[in-house]
Design a binder for these strands. Structure first.
Length: 630
DNA sequence: TTAGGGTTAG
């Protein structure tokens, strides 16, 4: 039975809710909050924690959850309470219009109000900066009666990220107080705009460094491809009990082609003295590493391991797995994963097209490309790697040429080394050695040894020793330590019976130290409008359904509830007695998939599941209409 | 007790 005592700041319930919120379990936080209502009145501090955790949900869920919790606060009379107010302002911070109207129309009240306003304004600054409205953010910042270190940090970070490094540094120098985040804001801006050396200089001089500083530097080196610098910093980090740090390092290796090292770091992370559990981001990188190694067995073990840790497959993980499956020849399993994606984007389409290209599925690759074009998803360089390799596998010269040409003319994508390599390979294999050679000479970038290598292979295939010699010399120049190119040239000489040249080549190899070993029930036709006053007779209900239960969800459809206001996320269900008796309607006010409150129609009044004096919402006039789509 | 900074897939 509810005791109706108000939970205070540090009541066990509030602590439990906050713990769930802080550990990234928003749904658990909401569920705990609802459980707390059985014993306590709604607690503003607990609600603040719930609001905070909801901001970690995906944007589309967070938006409806914010509206639901807003309605909830409004009805509880807790909207003006400074804590939930600031938390709601934060939650709305993805949407500057909503945040501003909350601040202007329902400002917080009470002794804590000035502080709460400061926090809410900080959220609004962050929101404006995120939406790219630098002038509005700056105006708000300049007119704030009180500023704290967070206000300054947000502004400095916003300027730095927008590339206005001079202004950012100028503001940074004016700061009355700095903390690690202030330094990190500038550090992050320097790195984002390619000033890695300057960032490092600053990093070494920083008076305070947080883990964020280290991780920012490590990921900066990772993106620049400097694996050694990143690893050296990671080893220097004293406090390695930080998931972000491990993820940054594993991803650094995985993204720079050091798959073995990525898995080694992952293994280190699992050691008992490291008190960090891998999350989906960790596994995305680990699966990517497995895929690079073509190690399906380890990949499958990782998948099982993920299940045992309780990690569900999100789209990122599915895409990583899909890639692993295509690279290990399980194209059908890959298609299953692809079809199961919540949303398909350029990354998942490209992964699938590359997979089809590799597995000789030209028609599938082309139809995927059409499908993504129809969905208005713009292809990128990787998409064309997939398409071109599909044409290459099918030996379709003309089509490949047209596709290659369309990259720059139609899609404004500059072909990379990889695209050129595929074209050279295709031309070479079909015997057009001179054309392939010309294409390499026309490349806008310095050709890598592998491009020449593709042509060298074609020279072997078509017994062209003369060109082979020229091409091989390019390979030796660009990759002096790679014995493979010597062996290829040796084969070319042998085919042409040039045994003295073979002998000389072997001698050169020895001299150079190279070895030979080298549900919802929503459906059309079931739409109906439930008029509350007619519910008793069940007229509309019968129209909507014959004799079975129906349910509907209302994400995006706003539902007007009597004595309540608008709810933007709800579930409704009707049940009819099989013999056509009484009909009843219940509406669940949903928040992130969890029932926040339930309303039942009982006679002519709506009852809410919220305990205490808020339970009975009273009668409502007959002209109230609840629109429910079933 | 609210706010800011870092990590994922082709």
């Amino acid at each position: 039975m509810p005791t109706h005592t108000a939970a205070h700041v540090n009541s066990p319930w509030t602590l439990a809710i906050r713990a769930a919120a802080d550990h990234g379990h928003p749904r658990r936080a909401i569920a705990l909050y609802l459980s707390s209502l059985a014993a306590h009145r709604p607690c503003p501090f607990a609600l603040a924690a719930v609001l905070k955790s909801v901001s970690r949900l995906p944007a589309h869920i967070a938006a409806t959850a914010a509206a639901s919790l807003h309605a909830h606060l409004l009805r509880l009379g807790l909207l003006m309470h400074p804590y939930p107010h600031a938390a709601l302002a934060h939650l709305y911070s993805r949407d500057p219009v909503a945040a501003r109207s909350l601040l202007d129309e329902t400002p917080p009240t009470g002794a804590q109000a000035p502080h709460s306003l400061l926090v809410s304004r900080n959220s609004l600054i962050a929101s404006l900066l995120r939406s790219g409205d630098l002038p509005a953010a700056r105006a708000l910042f300049d007119h704030m009666p009180v500023r704290d270190v967070v206000s300054w940090n947000s502004m400095v970070a916003g300027l730095a990220k927008a590339g206005r490094l001079d202004s950012a540094i100028q503001l940074f120098q004016q700061m009355p107080e700095r903390n690690a985040a202030s330094w990190n804001a500038v550090l992050c801006g320097l790195i984002a705009h390619g000033h890695l050396a300057r960032a490092r200089e600053m990093f070494e001089q920083m008076p305070v460094r947080s883990n964020v500083s280290w991780i920012t530097m490590i990921s900066g080196y990772a993106k620049a491809g400097d694996v050694h610098a990143a690893a050296a910093l990671f080893e220097r980090m004293e406090n390695k009990n930080d998931l972000y740090a491990w993820n940054a390092m594993i991803s650094c290796y995985a993204q720079n082609g050091c798959a073995r090292e990525a898995i080694q770091v992952f293994n280190r992370m699992l050691k008992p003295h490291v008190c960090v559990l891998p999350n989906e981001k960790t596994f995305s990188s680990v699966i990517s590493a497995c895929s690079q190694l073509g190690d399906l067995r380890f990949g499958l073990w990782v998948q099982t391991f993920m299940g045992s840790v309780g990690i569900e497959l999100d789209d990122h993980l599915r895409t990583a797995l899909l890639d692993l499956y295509t690279k290990t020849g399980r194209i059908d399993s890959a298609f299953d994963l692809f079809r199961g994606l919540r949303t398909r984007d350029v990354v998942s389409y490209s992964a699938m097209i590359v997979g089809c290209g590799m597995n000789g599925k030209l028609n599938e690759a082309i139809s995927l490309f059409k499908e993504m074009s129809n969905a208005n998803i713009r292809p990128n360089a990787v998409t064309f790697v997939g398409l071109l390799s599909a044409y290459k596998h099918a030996g379709l010269m003309e089509e490949a040429h047209a596709c290659f040409a369309s990259m720059s003319s139609k899609y404004k994508i500059r072909p990379s080394m990889e695209h050129y390599t595929i074209m050279v390979d295709l031309l070479g294999r079909s015997g057009k050695l001179d054309e392939a050679f010309q294409l390499i000479m026309q490349m806008p970038m310095q050709p890598h040894a592998s491009v020449w290598g593709a042509l060298l292979l074609a020279c072997e295939l078509h017994n062209n020793a003369e060109l082979g010699e020229v091409v091989a010399s390019k390979c030796f120049e660009l990759a002096p330590g790679d014995s493979g190119y010597y062996i290829l040239l040796g084969n070319i000489y042998a085919q042409a019976n040039k045994w003295d040249k073979v002998k000389r080549l072997r001698k050169t190899m020895t001299e150079r130290g190279l070895s030979l070993a080298a549900s919802s029930g929503l459906s059309e036709g079931l739409e109906g409008v439930f008029q509350r006053s007619r519910l008793g007779s069940g007229g509309s209900v019968q129209k909507a359904s014959a004799n079975k239960n129906q349910s509907a969800t209302g994400a995006g459809t706003r539902l007007k509830c009597p004595s309540f206001g608008w709810i933007s996320s709800w579930n409704a269900s009707t049940s009819l007695a099989p013999h056509g008796g009484r009909a009843s309607l219940a509406i669940w006010h949903m928040c992130a998939g969890i029932v926040l409150e339930r309303f039942n129609v009982a006679g002519t009044s709506w009852r809410s599941s919220i305990p205490g004096n808020l339970a009975d919402l009273g009668e409502h006039p007959d002209d109230e209409v609840v629109h429910v789509v079933l």
